[in-house]
Computed example of a mutant assay.
Amino acid sequence: MGGVRFRSPSTGRSIRAVLFDTFGTVVDWRTDIASAVAGYAERHRLELDAAAFADRWRDRYQPSMEPIRSGAREFVTLDTLHRENLDAALLESGIDPSDHDAGELDELSRTWHELTPWPDSVPGLTAIRSDYIIGPLSNGNTSLLLDMAKNAGIPWDVIIGSDMNRIYKPHPRAYLHTAQLLGLHPGEVMLAAAHNGDLEAAQAAGLATAFILRRLEHGPHQTTDLAPTGSWDISATGITDLAAQLCAASPG
Protein backbone atom coordinates (compact mmCIF):
# COMPACT_ATOMS: atom_id res chain seq x y z
CA MET A 1 0.00 0.00 0.00
CA GLY A 2 1.35 3.36 -1.00
CA GLY A 3 0.44 6.95 -0.33
CA VAL A 4 0.24 9.05 2.81
CA ARG A 5 -1.94 7.61 5.53
CA PHE A 6 -4.23 9.64 7.77
CA ARG A 7 -2.77 10.40 11.19
CA SER A 8 -5.46 10.19 13.86
CA PRO A 9 -5.64 13.25 16.13
CA SER A 10 -7.20 11.12 18.87
CA THR A 11 -4.74 8.20 18.86
CA GLY A 12 -1.64 9.96 17.53
CA ARG A 13 -1.00 7.08 15.14
CA SER A 14 -1.11 6.67 11.38
CA ILE A 15 -4.14 4.65 10.36
CA ARG A 16 -3.47 1.35 8.63
CA ALA A 17 -6.96 -0.20 8.63
CA VAL A 18 -10.35 1.43 8.15
CA LEU A 19 -13.07 -0.94 9.35
CA PHE A 20 -16.78 -0.41 8.94
CA ASP A 21 -19.94 -0.98 10.84
CA THR A 22 -22.03 -2.73 8.22
CA PHE A 23 -25.79 -2.68 8.88
CA GLY A 24 -26.92 0.86 8.17
CA THR A 25 -23.45 2.22 7.43
CA VAL A 26 -22.46 0.16 4.37
CA VAL A 27 -25.80 -1.47 3.48
CA ASP A 28 -29.41 -0.30 3.53
CA TRP A 29 -30.98 -2.98 5.70
CA ARG A 30 -34.42 -1.39 6.09
CA THR A 31 -35.39 -1.19 2.41
CA ASP A 32 -34.41 -4.78 1.63
CA ILE A 33 -35.88 -6.28 4.81
CA ALA A 34 -39.16 -4.42 4.30
CA SER A 35 -39.29 -5.60 0.68
CA ALA A 36 -38.71 -9.23 1.67
CA VAL A 37 -41.33 -9.00 4.41
CA ALA A 38 -43.82 -7.45 1.98
CA GLY A 39 -43.26 -10.32 -0.44
CA TYR A 40 -43.71 -12.91 2.29
CA ALA A 41 -46.86 -11.19 3.56
CA GLU A 42 -48.35 -11.06 0.07
CA ARG A 43 -47.66 -14.74 -0.59
CA HIS A 44 -49.27 -15.72 2.71
CA ARG A 45 -52.04 -13.12 2.67
CA LEU A 46 -50.90 -11.52 5.89
CA GLU A 47 -51.98 -8.05 6.94
CA LEU A 48 -48.61 -6.47 7.74
CA ASP A 49 -47.07 -3.04 7.48
CA ALA A 50 -43.77 -4.27 6.03
CA ALA A 51 -41.70 -1.23 7.00
CA ALA A 52 -43.05 -1.24 10.55
CA PHE A 53 -42.34 -4.97 10.79
CA ALA A 54 -38.77 -4.43 9.56
CA ASP A 55 -38.32 -1.86 12.33
CA ARG A 56 -39.84 -4.21 14.90
CA TRP A 57 -37.49 -7.01 13.82
CA ARG A 58 -34.47 -4.70 13.96
CA ASP A 59 -35.54 -3.25 17.34
CA ARG A 60 -34.77 -6.65 18.87
CA TYR A 61 -31.19 -6.60 17.54
CA GLN A 62 -29.33 -5.01 20.44
CA PRO A 63 -31.52 -6.42 23.26
CA SER A 64 -31.01 -9.96 21.94
CA MET A 65 -27.22 -9.54 22.19
CA GLU A 66 -27.19 -8.19 25.73
CA PRO A 67 -27.39 -11.60 27.49
CA ILE A 68 -24.32 -12.67 25.47
CA ARG A 69 -22.40 -9.49 26.27
CA SER A 70 -23.23 -9.90 29.96
CA GLY A 71 -22.23 -13.56 30.04
CA ALA A 72 -25.75 -14.76 30.84
CA ARG A 73 -25.91 -16.66 27.53
CA GLU A 74 -23.30 -18.54 25.57
CA PHE A 75 -22.35 -16.99 22.24
CA VAL A 76 -24.64 -17.73 19.30
CA THR A 77 -24.34 -16.21 15.85
CA LEU A 78 -26.29 -13.25 14.58
CA ASP A 79 -27.99 -15.64 12.16
CA THR A 80 -29.43 -17.44 15.17
CA LEU A 81 -30.49 -14.20 16.83
CA HIS A 82 -32.08 -12.89 13.63
CA ARG A 83 -34.12 -16.09 13.30
CA GLU A 84 -35.20 -15.99 16.95
CA ASN A 85 -36.07 -12.31 16.63
CA LEU A 86 -38.15 -13.01 13.52
CA ASP A 87 -40.34 -15.42 15.48
CA ALA A 88 -40.66 -12.90 18.30
CA ALA A 89 -41.58 -10.08 15.88
CA LEU A 90 -44.21 -12.31 14.26
CA LEU A 91 -45.74 -13.11 17.64
CA GLU A 92 -45.72 -9.43 18.52
CA SER A 93 -47.64 -8.82 15.29
CA GLY A 94 -50.26 -11.42 16.23
CA ILE A 95 -48.88 -14.10 13.91
CA ASP A 96 -47.97 -17.53 15.26
CA PRO A 97 -44.71 -18.63 13.57
CA SER A 98 -45.60 -22.27 14.26
CA ASP A 99 -48.38 -21.89 11.70
CA HIS A 100 -45.79 -21.14 9.01
CA ASP A 101 -43.26 -23.33 7.24
CA ALA A 102 -39.98 -23.15 9.16
CA GLY A 103 -37.94 -23.42 5.97
CA GLU A 104 -39.69 -20.40 4.48
CA LEU A 105 -39.05 -18.40 7.64
CA ASP A 106 -35.40 -19.49 7.52
CA GLU A 107 -35.22 -18.16 3.97
CA LEU A 108 -36.84 -14.88 4.99
CA SER A 109 -34.28 -14.53 7.76
CA ARG A 110 -31.48 -15.05 5.25
CA THR A 111 -32.45 -11.75 3.63
CA TRP A 112 -29.92 -10.26 6.06
CA HIS A 113 -27.22 -11.99 3.94
CA GLU A 114 -28.35 -10.19 0.76
CA LEU A 115 -28.60 -6.51 1.63
CA THR A 116 -27.90 -3.78 -0.91
CA PRO A 117 -25.10 -1.25 -0.34
CA TRP A 118 -25.82 2.46 -0.26
CA PRO A 119 -24.90 3.94 -3.67
CA ASP A 120 -21.64 5.49 -2.40
CA SER A 121 -20.46 2.42 -0.47
CA VAL A 122 -18.69 0.32 -3.11
CA PRO A 123 -16.97 3.24 -4.93
CA GLY A 124 -15.93 4.76 -1.61
CA LEU A 125 -14.59 1.49 -0.24
CA THR A 126 -12.72 0.83 -3.48
CA ALA A 127 -11.00 4.21 -3.19
CA ILE A 128 -10.09 3.71 0.48
CA ARG A 129 -8.75 0.22 -0.24
CA SER A 130 -5.93 1.65 -2.35
CA ASP A 131 -4.13 2.87 0.79
CA TYR A 132 -5.78 1.12 3.74
CA ILE A 133 -6.84 -2.34 4.82
CA ILE A 134 -10.63 -2.39 4.72
CA GLY A 135 -13.12 -4.79 6.26
CA PRO A 136 -16.24 -4.96 8.37
CA LEU A 137 -16.21 -4.51 12.12
CA SER A 138 -19.72 -5.81 12.49
CA ASN A 139 -21.94 -7.91 14.70
CA GLY A 140 -22.59 -10.08 11.66
CA ASN A 141 -21.12 -13.57 11.61
CA THR A 142 -18.47 -14.42 9.04
CA SER A 143 -20.70 -16.39 6.66
CA LEU A 144 -23.32 -13.63 6.68
CA LEU A 145 -20.73 -10.95 5.90
CA LEU A 146 -19.12 -13.11 3.22
CA ASP A 147 -22.45 -13.77 1.49
CA MET A 148 -23.29 -10.07 1.65
CA ALA A 149 -19.95 -9.10 0.15
CA LYS A 150 -20.19 -11.63 -2.69
CA ASN A 151 -23.79 -10.69 -3.45
CA ALA A 152 -23.20 -6.94 -3.42
CA GLY A 153 -19.63 -6.67 -4.73
CA ILE A 154 -18.26 -5.21 -1.51
CA PRO A 155 -14.45 -5.25 -1.91
CA TRP A 156 -13.30 -6.18 1.60
CA ASP A 157 -9.66 -7.15 2.12
CA VAL A 158 -10.56 -9.19 5.19
CA ILE A 159 -13.69 -10.36 6.99
CA ILE A 160 -13.58 -10.89 10.75
CA GLY A 161 -17.06 -11.82 11.91
CA SER A 162 -18.40 -11.66 15.43
CA ASP A 163 -18.13 -15.45 15.59
CA MET A 164 -14.35 -15.00 15.51
CA ASN A 165 -14.43 -12.53 18.41
CA ARG A 166 -17.20 -14.45 20.22
CA ILE A 167 -18.67 -11.19 21.49
CA TYR A 168 -20.86 -8.38 20.23
CA LYS A 169 -20.26 -4.66 19.98
CA PRO A 170 -20.18 -2.43 21.93
CA HIS A 171 -18.23 -4.77 24.25
CA PRO A 172 -14.59 -3.58 24.19
CA ARG A 173 -13.32 -7.03 23.18
CA ALA A 174 -15.15 -6.77 19.84
CA TYR A 175 -12.91 -3.85 18.88
CA LEU A 176 -9.68 -4.91 20.56
CA HIS A 177 -9.65 -8.52 19.39
CA THR A 178 -10.29 -7.42 15.81
CA ALA A 179 -7.23 -5.14 15.95
CA GLN A 180 -5.23 -7.98 17.49
CA LEU A 181 -6.21 -10.39 14.72
CA LEU A 182 -4.95 -7.85 12.19
CA GLY A 183 -1.67 -7.49 14.07
CA LEU A 184 -2.33 -3.80 14.63
CA HIS A 185 -2.28 -1.43 17.57
CA PRO A 186 -5.87 -0.32 18.30
CA GLY A 187 -4.85 3.25 17.50
CA GLU A 188 -3.90 2.18 13.96
CA VAL A 189 -7.49 1.05 13.33
CA MET A 190 -10.30 3.42 12.45
CA LEU A 191 -13.94 2.46 12.88
CA ALA A 192 -16.30 4.17 10.44
CA ALA A 193 -19.93 4.02 11.51
CA ALA A 194 -23.26 5.77 11.19
CA HIS A 195 -23.95 5.22 14.88
CA ASN A 196 -22.53 7.52 17.53
CA GLY A 197 -22.85 4.86 20.23
CA ASP A 198 -20.67 2.46 18.24
CA LEU A 199 -18.05 5.19 17.76
CA GLU A 200 -18.14 6.08 21.46
CA ALA A 201 -17.35 2.48 22.39
CA ALA A 202 -14.63 2.20 19.74
CA GLN A 203 -13.00 5.43 20.91
CA ALA A 204 -13.08 4.21 24.51
CA ALA A 205 -11.28 1.04 23.34
CA GLY A 206 -8.54 3.18 21.75
CA LEU A 207 -9.59 3.15 18.09
CA ALA A 208 -9.74 6.13 15.77
CA THR A 209 -13.24 7.04 14.65
CA ALA A 210 -15.15 8.38 11.63
CA PHE A 211 -18.83 9.30 11.58
CA ILE A 212 -20.75 8.48 8.38
CA LEU A 213 -24.08 10.26 7.96
CA ARG A 214 -26.95 7.99 6.92
CA ARG A 215 -30.10 10.11 7.18
CA LEU A 216 -32.43 7.40 5.90
CA GLU A 217 -31.18 4.29 7.70
CA HIS A 218 -34.38 4.20 9.77
CA GLY A 219 -36.59 5.68 7.07
CA PRO A 220 -37.81 9.21 6.33
CA HIS A 221 -38.73 9.94 9.95
CA GLN A 222 -35.35 9.09 11.46
CA THR A 223 -34.54 11.10 14.59
CA THR A 224 -31.23 9.57 15.71
CA ASP A 225 -27.63 9.80 14.46
CA LEU A 226 -28.35 12.78 12.23
CA ALA A 227 -25.09 14.46 13.30
CA PRO A 228 -21.87 13.52 15.08
CA THR A 229 -22.23 13.77 18.84
CA GLY A 230 -18.61 13.13 19.83
CA SER A 231 -15.13 14.35 19.01
CA TRP A 232 -14.60 11.86 16.22
CA ASP A 233 -11.50 12.09 14.00
CA ILE A 234 -13.56 12.56 10.84
CA SER A 235 -17.18 13.43 10.09
CA ALA A 236 -18.28 12.49 6.56
CA THR A 237 -21.46 12.72 4.51
CA GLY A 238 -20.85 9.26 3.05
CA ILE A 239 -18.12 6.75 2.30
CA THR A 240 -16.95 8.55 -0.83
CA ASP A 241 -16.57 11.70 1.30
CA LEU A 242 -14.63 9.68 3.87
CA ALA A 243 -12.38 8.43 1.06
CA ALA A 244 -11.76 12.01 -0.09
CA GLN A 245 -10.87 13.14 3.43
CA LEU A 246 -8.53 10.20 3.98
CA CYS A 247 -6.87 10.78 0.63
CA ALA A 248 -6.37 14.44 1.53
CA ALA A 249 -4.34 13.41 4.59
CA SER A 250 -1.07 15.23 5.04
CA PRO A 251 2.06 13.72 6.57
CA GLY A 252 1.88 13.48 10.36
Rank of each mutant, 00 (worst) to 15 (best):
L207R: 04
Y61M: 06
R13H: 10
D147K: 12
H113P: 00
A248P: 04
P172N: 06
S121M: 05
K150F: 12
L48T: 08
S98H: 08
S93E: 09
G187T: 10
T229A: 14
G3Y: 02
I167V: 15
D131S: 15
D99P: 00
A38C: 03
I95T: 01
F20I: 08
A41N: 09
G135F: 06
A17L: 12
G124L: 06
D106F: 00
D106Y: 00
A249W: 09
P186K: 10
D49I: 06
E84L: 12
G124D: 11
A50F: 12
A205W: 10
P172K: 11
G153K: 09
E74L: 10
L46H: 04
G71S: 08
S162V: 03
D241V: 07
L81V: 09
L226P: 03
D49E: 13
Q222D: 05
S235T: 15
H218N: 13
S143D: 13
D79K: 05
A152Y: 08
V37L: 08
G124Q: 11
S143I: 13
F211D: 02
A127I: 10
D163G: 01
L48V: 15
D59N: 14
I134H: 01
E47N: 14
L19C: 08
A192Y: 07
A88L: 15
L90S: 01
L146Y: 06
D233G: 08
G71F: 05
N196H: 10
I159W: 03
A208R: 04
R5F: 05
T126A: 15
G219C: 12
R58A: 07
P67L: 04
N139L: 03
G206W: 12
L115C: 09
D225W: 04
A236G: 09
A36F: 04
G94R: 06
G135N: 09
P220W: 00
V37G: 02
T126Q: 14
P123M: 06
P63N: 07
T31W: 00
S143N: 09
N85E: 05
G2M: 11
P172C: 06
N196P: 12
H100Q: 12
F53L: 13
I239T: 06
S14L: 09
F6G: 06
A174Q: 05
P119I: 07
R214A: 10
G153Q: 13
P220D: 12
L19E: 07
A149W: 10
M164Q: 14
D241F: 07
Y61R: 01
P186M: 10
Q203Y: 01
R45I: 00
A54T: 11
D21H: 08
A54S: 15
S10M: 12
H44S: 03
L137Y: 03
G206T: 11
A102S: 13
E74G: 13
D21W: 08
A174W: 01
A244T: 14
G103T: 02
S35C: 01
T237R: 12
T240R: 12
V26E: 01
D225E: 11
E42P: 00
A205D: 05
A152N: 07
G230A: 11
E114D: 14
D59L: 11
D106H: 03
W232H: 15
S98E: 11
C247Y: 05
W57S: 08
G124S: 11
I134R: 05
D147H: 13
S93P: 02
P63C: 06
V27D: 04
Q180H: 14
V189A: 03
H100M: 10
A243P: 02
P63V: 11
D198E: 15
H113G: 00
A227Y: 13
G39E: 13
A227Q: 14
T111P: 05
